[in-house]
Design a protein around this nucleic acid. Structure first.
Lengths: 259, 259
DNA sequence: CGGAATAGTATGTGCCGTACACAGTTAGGT
DNA sequence: ACCTAACTGTGTACGGCACATACTATTCCG
């Protein structure tokens, strides 16, 4: 109800959660010294998630790991969602001092995508997160900034550049998610007692499900493997990235060619 | 423990949940007639999700809506996850008889993506789902088949074609998710009492957070709007799709050019 | 030095998925 | 025609987990 005094620019309310993410949450000076920090909590949660998956990240579990009670965490984060946001942002730590190497926009953008992919493979739980918003953490934005930087020379408009960044990111995330799911499914199958000869991948599944007359193309895909089929998941990913970059190249050509 | 009789091809075990999705779950003949069906349950859950969001899809809620007790549902679905899978697949209903119009692969593939996007806008809850696996429901596969069909004339290899399908899908899903999140955030803000003048979009947020020296490019993006900036979200999406299609064009050219 | 603000604790509540035991219902074999 | 096995739906209870509330202990400010 307190109307802010008109005159000062008054730091805008800032959506809930973002203040913490940006270290702008005011902390009182009286009382005992805080024994923890949001960063420490996030780091602990990340350790758990890396080791045992996102399901292992329970408020009680994190608290126990840190040697406090569950409710102590709520002095630092408003709710679990906020903790997840912190984890996400923290996983992009180091983007600030990241230097993308390469002698042209194309190779730089490509390695930008690869770096992102590697990060997702290191922290597969990111692919399972709610993802309720576009990236707004400082580290995430740093990473976006690095991506934009890689396109400095292209002469594309800023709008187009973020669009490209978004495109590459979403593809990368999606590929990482599928890989992570496959890995988890394989692990679960082993835990359930089956030992799979071949990993029983997507292709094998299609062979089980798809019949020739209703799904002729998928059927072909499932049954007649390409001659040079043994292409690794990573090769597939790189292929997709390169295709996107071809599209970007076309954008640049069109912009430079003046129509 | 029962070893299947060697000799019959014996329908492979099929991963849990898939049997239901494909209507291959055997149902006994004795006992009372089933008062429900998996399809009816999924349809009811979809009604709820469309109207009130995925959070409204509770087993108890769905059951009440159908006039049965909560546990009755478990005669038809093994758990909530299975229900979500059913919902996902059911949302792609009609893909079987879908005809993609267009006089070339490019326009067909484009409208394929648009159709998918429209479907996601109609059922925004899909973007919030766990998505624990690649699409394996019969309807989802029908839709994939239609996408492959759109590329029949391209001469691309089958491997490349699904890759393109996956690329387009993941971009479409990601864009739809961001749009749905924005819409939900706006609705929540209104519910919280604020009435936003402008929708307080991503750009406005960046203006709040980003300073010039650490994020020079994002800063520029946030502060100096493009002259022709008022491009709708849909235009943005189409732009992204067209960029991807440019990349596909390059693939085709390269394949045809024999190198 | 007194009081206010803060950190951490202990306990409880509500929600929600789902396990379990049971009552009522139908089909098939004898 | 009956008995029984298979099956549907109910009632109840349990367990996990995020989070609320009330309380104690600690530290800074005037």
């Amino acid at each position: 109800m307190a109307e802010p005094t008109a005159g000062q620019p008054a730091p805008r309310p800032l959506p809930p959660g973002l203040d913490l993410l940006w270290g702008r949450r005011e902390r009182g000076k009286r009382g005992p010294r805080p024994g923890l920090s949001a960063e420490a909590i996030a780091a602990c949660a990340i350790r758990l998630a890396d080791a045992e998956g996102l399901d292992a990240v329970l408020m009680a579990r994190v608290a126990a790991e840190l040697g406090v009670t569950t409710m102590a965490l709520y002095r630092y984060v408003a709710n679990k969602d906020e903790l997840l946001q912190l984890m996400w942002n923290a996983s992009a730590l180091g983007a600030e001092h990241l230097v993308i190497e390469g002698d042209g926009w194309r190779s730089r953008l490509r390695s930008w995508a690869v770096i992102q992919r590697d990060m997702l493979d290191r922290h597969p739980w990111i692919t399972q997160m709610p993802m309720a918003a576009p990236p707004v953490g400082p580290n995430s934005l740093h990473f976006v900034e690095r991506g934009l930087e890689a396109m400095d020379e292209t002469g594309l408009s800023d709008m187009v550049k973020i669009q490209v960044i978004g495109l590459l990111s979403s593809y990368t995330l999606s590929e990482a998610r599928m890989a992570a799911d496959a890995a988890r499914a394989a692990k679960a199958a082993v835990a359930a007692g089956e030992q799979p000869g071949p990993p029983q991948g997507y292709e094998a599944l299609l062979r089980e499900l798809v019949d020739e007359q209703t799904y002729p193309r998928l059927y072909r895909l499932a049954w007649q493997p390409e001659p040079d089929s043994p292409q690794s998941e990573r090769d597939q990913f790189l292929f997709g990235v390169d295709t996107i970059l071809d599209g970007v190249q076309a954008l640049i050509d069109r912009a430079a060619g003046g129509y």
